[in-house]
C-alpha cells in the first residue's frame, strides 16, 4: 500500500460512507419493522422522529457518495505520479485488477444514490410519508453494495505497488486491445454518432414534442432503456470521438486525461452533463412510476417536468461539449470536413 494523502482520503471517505450507510440500514430496518402511520403511540412518534434524522443523514451520505466519484478519479490521477508507467488515472486504475471494477461500482452507486435522493425528496414532500417503506427497503438492498465498495477500495489501494510498472492510457484505450476500453475506442463513429444523435432526437420528440402527455408517459421502461443507451454511446463518443479533437492526437483516446488542467478540465462539464442528463432522465421515469403507484399528484407531476427539463438541457449541453472540440478543431486548422 502507498501512504499517499489521496489514498488515505479515499479509504477514509469510503469507511465514513459505509459507517453512515450501515447506521441508516439498521435504523431503516427498525423503522420498517414497526412503522404504522395510523397509530399515535409513543413508538410511532419515536419512529417519526427517527426517520427525520435518518433521512437527513442519508441525504448527506448519498450526496457525498456522488461527489466521491469525481474525487476518486482525481485521486487516481494524482496517485499516477508515483506509479511507474502511469500517465493519468487510467494507469492507476489498471495497475491492479480492482481499479476498473471499483470505478464501475462507484459510478453505479452514484446513480443509485441519485435515485434514492429523488425518492427521498418525493417522500419528504408529502405529509404522510407514502414512500417510507420503499425508500428504506432500497437502502437495505443498497447497503451490501456500499460494503462491497469499501472492500474493493481497500483491496485496490492495498494492492497499489510503486515497484510494478503499469500501463498508460495509450495502451488501455488502444483500439487493438480486447478490453472494454479497446472496445469503446474501436467503436465505429460513423455508426455510433448517428445512433447517439438519433436517440437524443427520439428522447426529445417522445418527451416533449407533438405527442400527448398520455403517450409521452407510456412505456417508462423503454425510456429508461433509451437513457442507458445514451449513457453507453455517450461514453463511447467521449473516447472515440471527442477525445481525439481535444488531445489533437489520432491515437490518444483516454477518457481521464481530459479531466486534467492541461486540457482545461474539459472533461468535467462533459461528464457532468452526460451523467446529470442520464440520471435525471431515468429519475423522471421513476417519479412517473411513483405517481402511477399512488394517485395523480400535481406536485410529483411538476417535479417530473423539472427533471425532464434538466435531463434534456443537460444532454443537449453534453452534445454541444462533445462536438465543440471537433468543430473548433476544423475552424482552427482550416481542414475540410
Amino acid at each position: 500500500m502507498i501512504f499517499h494523502p489521496w489514498v488515505i482520503g479515499m479509504i477514509t471517505g469510503d469507511f465514513i460512507i459505509l459507517f453512515l450507510i450501515l447506521l441508516g440500514m439498521v435504523n431503516a430496518g427498525i423503522i420498517n419493522k414497526s412503522w404504522d402511520f395510523e397509530q399515535s403511540t409513543p413508538l410511532q412518534y419515536k419512529l417519526e422522529k427517527k426517520t427525520y434524522l435518518v433521512s437527513a443523514i442519508m441525504n448527506f451520505t448519498m450526496g457525498i457518495q456522488i461527489a466521491l466519484l469525481l474525487l476518486f478519479v482525481i485521486a487516481a490521477d494524482e496517485i499516477s505520479a508515483v506509479l511507474p508507467g502511469a500517465m493519468c488515472a487510467t494507469g492507476t486504475l489498471s495497475s491492479n485488477s480492482f481499479g476498473f471494477p471499483l470505478l464501475f461500482l462507484k459510478l453505479f452507486l452514484a446513480f443509485l444514490s441519485f435515485f434514492w435522493l429523488i425518492i427521498n425528496y418525493i417522500d419528504n414532500q408529502r405529509e404522510n410519508y407514502p414512500l417510507i417503506r420503499e425508500k428504506y427497503q432500497l437502502l437495505i438492498i443498497l447497503a451490501p453494495l456500499y460494503l462491497l465498495q469499501t472492500i474493493l477500495t481497500f483491496l485496490f489501494v492495498s494492492d497499489l505497488d510503486p515497484s510494478v510498472i503499469t500501463s498508460c492510457c495509450g495502451v488501455v484505450f488502444d483500439e487493438q486491445q480486447e478490453t472494454i476500453g479497446g472496445f469503446l475506442a474501436d467503436m465505429e463513429t460513423a455508426i455510433s454518432l448517428p445512433i447517439l444523435v438519433g436517440l437524443y432526437l427520439l428522447i426529445v420528440v417522445k418527451n416533449n414534442l407533438f405527442l400527448k402527455r398520455s403517450w409521452r408517459e407510456k412505456m417508462p421502461f423503454i425510456d429508461i432503456l433509451l437513457w442507458l443507451s445514451i449513457l453507453g454511446l455517450g461514453l463511447a463518443t467521449i473516447i472515440n470521438f471527442a477525445s481525439i479533437y481535444i488531445y489533437e492526437m489520432p491515437n490518444h483516446r483516454c477518457p481521464f486525461c481530459l479531466l486534467q488542467k492541461e486540457y482545461y478540465y474539459l472533461g468535467i462539464p462533459i461528464y457532468l452533463s452526460l451523467f446529470l442528463g442520464v440520471a435525471t432522465g431515468i429519475s423522471k421515469n421513476i417519479t412517473l412510476r411513483l405517481e402511477y403507484l399512488f394517485k395523480p399528484d400535481d406536485q410529483i407531476q411538476g417535479f417530473s417536468r423539472k427533471l425532464n427539463k434538466v435531463s434534456l438541457i443537460s444532454i443537449s449541453l453534453f452534445l454541444v461539449f462533445a462536438f465543440a472540440p471537433f468543430v473548433l478543431y476544423f475552424i482552427k486548422t482550416g481542414s475540410k470536413l
Binding site: S40, T41, P42, E48, K49, Y52, E127, Y129
Partner: peptide, 22 residues
C-alpha cells in the same frame, strides 16, 4: 411540541403526526 403519544387534531387536520416542515 410533539406529544409522546395521543393525537392532536386542529380544524379537522391531524397535526401531531405532521412532519416538521408541514
Amino acid at each position: 411540541l410533539k406529544p409522546t403519544s395521543g393525537e392532536i387534531t386542529i380544524m379537522g387536520k391531524s397535526v401531531s403526526k405532521l412532519p416538521e416542515k408541514f
